[in-house]
């Protein structure tokens, strides 16, 4: 069992996707054909990445099942938590210019929170309750956010095991 982690700040270019009134995927974790295997998401963290809007507002977060990679995104650096472990077989993508495919019916978890709030969800790695990504090419989990007013960046991180 190897544990991995990444964040949408694990790439400098292109720039982080700004939050908008429609949901924007900040981070996507997906299976890849070349190294096909299941991934077990056991932690995700979200929070604002810019100064708050002068008008107090909300950020709506959702974790959603996705079936394609978005376009214009970049592969994020995936770090093995134990540096002795091999490179991750999944692929983490972020900073898309066009959204990956994912229906609202595929929402796994959602949260409405203040623009100044942050949230963390965690289960014990290897234990029950992990979110499983099937070993199917480009099947994955996306973490998205939207806001009626906030237009800054959002920071999203996740940890998983393979």
């Amino acid at each position: 069992m190897a544990l991995y982690g990444t964040s949408n700040i694990a790439a400098t270019t292109p720039a982080l996707t700004a939050v908008a009134a429609t949901s924007k995927t900040m981070l996507q974790l997906a299976a890849a054909t070349a190294t096909l295997r299941r991934a077990f998401l056991y932690e995700w963290t979200v929070g604002p990445g810019s100064v708050p809007n002068a008008t107090d507002c909300e950020l709506v977060w959702s974790v959603i099942k996705q079936t394609t990679a978005g376009t214009g995104g970049v592969t994020l650096t995936m770090n093995a938590i134990d540096q002795a472990d091999a490179t991750a077989g999944s692929v983490a993508l972020g900073n898309f210019t066009a959204e990956p495919t994912g229906a609202e019916t595929g929402i796994i978890d959602s949260l409405g929170a203040n623009q100044r709030a942050s949230y963390r969800w965690v289960v014990a790695p290897g234990g029950p309750g992990e979110i499983v990504i099937p070993a199917t090419n480009l099947a994955g989990i996306g973490i998205r956010t939207k806001s009626s007013t906030y237009v800054g960046n959002a920071i999203v991180g996740c940890k998983w095991r393979e």
């Binding site: 100044r116 969800w121 965690v122 029950p128």
Partner: peptide, 11 residues
């Protein structure tokens, strides 16, 4: 109840 969600609010 296998997971834990932690929300850190604005204050």
């Amino acid at each position: 109840l296998t997971g834990l969600g932690t929300l850190i609010g604005p204050w």
